[in-house]
Write a protein that binds this DNA or RNA. Structure first.
Length: 286
DNA sequence: CCCGTCACGGTTGAC
DNA sequence: CTGTCAACCGTGACG
């Protein structure tokens, strides 16, 4: 970061009297990790996603040193509302982690009484299927047709109590998780030998100044870092070929046969490729 | 100038 | 497998 602490690059500010509209951000940056955007302070964020952990940690650490929130906001290029929120949460909970995103609360479809009966049936006859339990609840008069839980609800109760479904094991779930990991995280794509994740790659981007000057090359930086990993450092990436890696971004698929030392964009060598901090930090990380 | 608050557009994941 | 929806996110404007 070349800028002085507490200052904001003039080019990133809106003109006097002109504010950005609530919808539509001034700059959009496409990255393999999501749709990156630039805030008024010049910082990169992904709309709807939490800030990376190292930034959250830095916010709390700076506040701990008595640095004022407005200075933290400017230095880290994070909106003051966000700084305020993270510090408030830290004071309340003692944690810097974001809250649990997504999901919905489990619906109370079965009363505690009914749940107890389901548990009893299963304990008496472990081989019993959910639909059989449902029938028995009706037969024994525990529930009537309007109050009896659905088969899937009974499965859920059993899963919660016994740790897995009644009529199938949990390998499907594991497979599903594995597939998700492969599809959405760099970690998954690179395999276990190389522990890079969306969160862990952010420090390289920030530390190498990508948040401001090299902003438009974020995609390329990730590709360059990954290709360094693959071709120069002989990291064992069993789950991905060089070709697969470059197919990540259709716009750069034509580079798949290009030596990493000669990557160019519009006839110019990619600035980030020579960004020593990025490479140094990557090496330290490995 | 600083900071708490909240509408907004967005993502996520259990159901 | 897909859609729904309520949780969360950070930004940016307002007071």
């Amino acid at each position: 970061m070349a800028t002085l602490p507490g200052t904001v690059p003039r080019m990133m500010r809106p003109a006097p009297g002109q504010n950005y509209p609530r919808t539509g951000f001034p700059l959009e940056v496409s990255t393999p990790l999501g749709q990156g955007r630039v805030n008024q302070l010049g910082g990169v964020f992904i709309n709807g996603r939490p800030l990376p952990n190292h930034i959250r940690h830095k916010i709390v650490e700076m506040a701990h040193h008595g640095i004022r929130p407005c200075v933290i906001s400017r230095q880290l290029r994070v909106s003051h509302g966000c700084v305020s929120k993270i510090l408030c949460r830290y004071q309340e909970t003692g944690s810097i982690r974001p809250g649990a995103i997504g999901g919905s609360k489990p619906r109370q479809v079965a009363t505690p009484d009914v749940e107890k009966r389901i548990e009893e049936y299963k304990r008496e006859n472990p081989g019993m299927f959910s639909w059989e339990i449902r029938d028995k609840l009706l037969k024994d008069g525990v529930c009537d047709r309007s109050t009896v839980p659905s088969v899937s609800s009974i499965s859920r109760v059993l899963r919660a109590r016994f740790g897995k479904k009644d009529d199938e094991d949990d390998c499907d779930k594991k497979d599903e998780d594995g597939e998700k990991k492969t599809k959405h995280s760099i970690d998954g794509i690179l395999g276990d030998k190389c522990k890079l994740t969306a969160d862990s790659i952010w420090p390289f981007l920030y530390m190498s100044g990508i948040t401001n000057y090299h902003l438009h090359y974020t995609d390329i930086i990730i590709i360059v870092l990954l290709s360094l990993l693959l071709s120069s450092f002989k990291v064992n990436c069993s789950l991905v070929s060089r070709k697969q890696m470059f197919s990540f971004l259709p716009s750069t698929s034509s580079w798949e046969n290009c030596p990493t030392s000669e990557l160019q964009l519009n006839g110019e060598f990619i600035p980030a490729f020579n960004s020593e901090p990025a490479v140094v930090h990557l090496l330290n990380y490995l």
